[in-house]
Each structure stands twice: as C-alpha cells, then as structure tokens.
C-alpha cells in the first residue's frame, strides 16, 4: 500500500460537511447566479450562430415552464435572479435525493466508486 493511499487517511482529521459549509456554498451559488443574471446573461453560442447562418432555429418539443431561465411575461432581472437561485436550490434537493438513494451507510469505506 502506497504512503498516499486512501486507507492511510486519518479519518478523524477529515472535516465533513456541515450546515455552515452548505450555507457558504449557497452564498457562492447566489453570487454566480447574480453574475449570470445581471452581468453575463447574454448567450450566443457557436451552435446558435451556425444555425442562424443556416436560417433555422432550434425549438423545444415539450413546453418548459421557464424557457431561457425566465418566467414568461415577467422578464425582469430581479425575478430572473430569484428564479435562478430557486433553481439552484431545486438542483441541490434533487441531487441530494439521488445521492441519498445511492448511499449506503455512515461507514467511511474508502470507496470503490472509480
């Protein structure tokens, strides 16, 4: 076993996530959403440009509730920011649920996920 192996980690020195850390993460997420809403919101990707050259646009087969990350008819940057942040919370909850289903126990196994 090499010196830098997972088995040699001192488990007592590993800091596990707590509420304060989650809160910090959410503040970072809010900053990112604010940047994406108020400053860097315009999206013109290569794919859009090439499609435009060909004279057609992509469409959405299923109607999404919040196309372009906005509430239809309420296209205000502040509303978009709130929608973006609520979406981040939704992703957090969904991801938490999926990982919870996949998780085993409270044993720190040193794991075989790779």
């Amino acid at each position: 076993m090499s010196e830098n192996s997972i088995e040699n980690l001192d488990k007592s020195k590993l800091d596990h996530p707590n509420k304060k850390w989650l809160l910090t993460g959410m503040v970072v997420a809010a900053v990112l959403v604010a940047m994406g809403t108020f400053v860097f919101s315009e999206s013109i990707e290569t794919l859009d440009v090439k499609a435009e050259e060909l004279g057609f646009e992509g469409f959405s087969l299923l109607p999404a509730p919040f196309p372009e990350y906005a509430i239809p008819g309420l296209e205000d940057p502040l509303v978009n920011f709130l929608l973006g942040f609520v979406s981040v919370l939704l992703v957090l909850i969904v991801a938490f649920g999926v990982y919870k289903i996949l998780s085993s126990s409270h044993n720190l196994k040193g794991v075989s996920t790779s």
Binding site: H16, P17, W21, L22, G25, L92, I93, A95, F96, Y99, K100, L102, S103, S104, S105, H106, N107, L108, K109, V111, S112, T113
Partner: peptide, 14 residues
Amino acid sequence: KGNVDDRLVPLMAL
C-alpha cells in the same frame, strides 16, 4: 449503488 458514504451526500449535492 451502496458505495457512497452517506456523510458526503450534502457535499456532492452542493
């Protein structure tokens, strides 16, 4: 499935 440490779930979700 069954190989994820439960305590790391909040970190992964975040």
